[in-house]
Design a protein around this nucleic acid. Structure first.
Length: 127
DNA sequence: TAACTGACTCGGC
DNA sequence: AGCCGAGCCAGTT
């Protein structure tokens, strides 16, 4: 006990986000995305308490490959509804193919009616 | 230890 | 209206 450390790093003070790394938290939220819906990196980051950590969320996706629980990263797109991470699925069409299977219309690497299909974790999971 | 990267986002021109 | 640059966060090397 008495680690005598400065104690910093507890700034998260969110509800959970406790011992799990930021990545674990991101994956957990992504897995909660309902089928047929999509969300943005900024929305996930904001839910974790860091609206500016959108880049970090995308970075977490980079490590989501090979995870035990499947992470529907294909449901995560950028703020413009563009499939920015399609190139990281091994195949540039894999992400679009998965989205189409979810009944999500995709054109030109962009989600159609993205605004309507947008799923906000802070509004649905918000504690 | 320090520096860089990166699947983003916002603002300004 | 579209294009460009800077900022931010966490993890990796």
């Amino acid at each position: 006990m008495n680690s005598t450390k400065k104690g910093a790093k507890n700034e998260l003070s969110a509800k959970q986000a406790a011992q799990y790394s930021f990545f674990e938290n991101v994956w957990d939220v992504v897995r909660q995305i309902p089928k047929g819906r999509v969300t943005s990196y900024g929305a996930i980051a904001a839910y974790l308490g860091t609206p500016k950590a959108a880049r970090t969320v995308g970075y977490a996706m980079n490590a989501c490959h090979g995870l035990k629980p499947k992470v529907p990263a294909h449901r995560v797109v950028n703020r413009n509804g563009l499939l920015s991470g399609r190139h990281h699925f091994g195949s540039p069409h894999a992400m679009q193919y998965l989205l189409e299977k979810e009944k999500i219309a995709v054109a030109n690497n962009q989600v159609i009616d993205f605004k309507s299909l947008f799923w906000d974790p802070c509004a649905e999971l918000r504690a």
